[in-house]
């Protein structure tokens, strides 16, 4: 009764090739190919995320309009009424800033929590994990497009009519999406190892909110801090949205190009980090 060792005849008769030495770039390319194969899953996750978001609320999809409006009213009340600051079109100024900021903060936060929420699936099925954060950013982008249209409409009573310049919001939002994806990918992977990440992010984003020109123009930042302040990509992105929506003028393309270059670097690094960590996900979640 001691058949302890395996019968050599039962061992694989074929040569089982060892996996080739891993290369992070090769893994990243393979992951992108897999995402392309799983595009149907990506699409379905985006639509189901949009569907379930307000599934149990009375107002349902109306929240898409209400969310940015109510949020803006809070700040209009605070800054415009209580502190007596801001001009007559301050509400539009605030909404333009808030929807841009929300795309970044909510977008990356949802990427992080959406990835960890699918742990049951990650433990059972093989699929490219980057589909999960990608689907969240897809939903966030659709939200943004909706909120941006609302912005163009509510600007009309303030005497600000939509112009062709508003189309320039597309390249601006593209740059912002690249940045958000990079940050989101990095934090999504990090959060699998350290579950405090989402909590911490909420506070960091709150600081980021006040350090970005959402409630005030860049011009109020004292001259000596200005260079430092402009290191924040949102010091470029948010005024750019306002330029094209409210001022009907071209944004600062030079500054945008720098932000775009930085964002691409952030995306590449964030994505490589995500791909590098991915094999561990199934063991950890």
């Amino acid at each position: 009764m001691t058949s302890t060792s395996a019968d050599p005849a039962l061992a694989p008769a074929v040569d089982v090739a060892e996996a080739p030495p891993r290369s992070i770039v090769r893994d990243a390319v393979a992951e992108l190919r897999a995402v392309a194969r799983y595009r149907h899953l990506l699409r379905y996750l985006v639509s189901s995320s949009l569907k379930t978001e307000h599934a149990n609320t009375v107002l349902g999809f109306l929240w898409w309009v209400l969310d940015p409006l109510l949020l803006a009213s809070v700040y209009v009340l605070l800054v415009g009424v209580l502190l007596q600051r801001g001009g007559p079109d301050f509400p539009i100024f605030v909404v333009a800033g808030i929807i841009a900021w929300e795309l970044f903060s909510k977008g990356s936060l949802n990427m992080v929590s959406g990835t960890v929420r699918k742990e049951a699936s990650m433990r059972q099925v093989v699929f490219p994990k980057s589909v999960l954060p990608l689907s969240e950013i897809g939903a966030a982008a659709i939200h943004w497009a909706f909120a941006f249209s609302v912005l163009l409409v509510i600007a009309i009573p303030f005497g600000i009519y939509p112009s062709a310049y508003a189309l320039l919001a597309l390249p601006i939002v593209l740059v912002q999406l690249v940045l958000t994806l990079g940050v989101g990918f990095f934090l999504s992977a990090f959060n699998i190892f350290f579950r405090d990440t989402t909590r911490l992010m909420q506070y960091v984003f709150r600081i980021g909110f006040y350090l970005s020109p959402v409630l005030y123009p860049v011009s109020v930042v004292p001259e000596r801090f200005r260079d430092l302040y402009l290191l924040n990509p949102f010091a470029t992105l948010i005024p750019a949205y306002r330029d094209v929506v409210m001022e009907h003028r071209l944004p600062d393309f030079g500054a945008l190009a720098i932000v775009a270059g930085g964002s691409i670097v952030v995306l590449i690094l964030g994505y490589l980090f995500f791909v590098r960590c991915q094999p561990w996900f199934a063991k950890l979640v």
Partner: peptide, 13 residues
């Protein structure tokens, strides 16, 4: 899970 491909071998193949 390894046969299913969810886990990647750390040794062998």
């Amino acid at each position: 899970l390894t046969i299913a491909g969810v886990l990647r071998p750390d040794a062998g193949a």
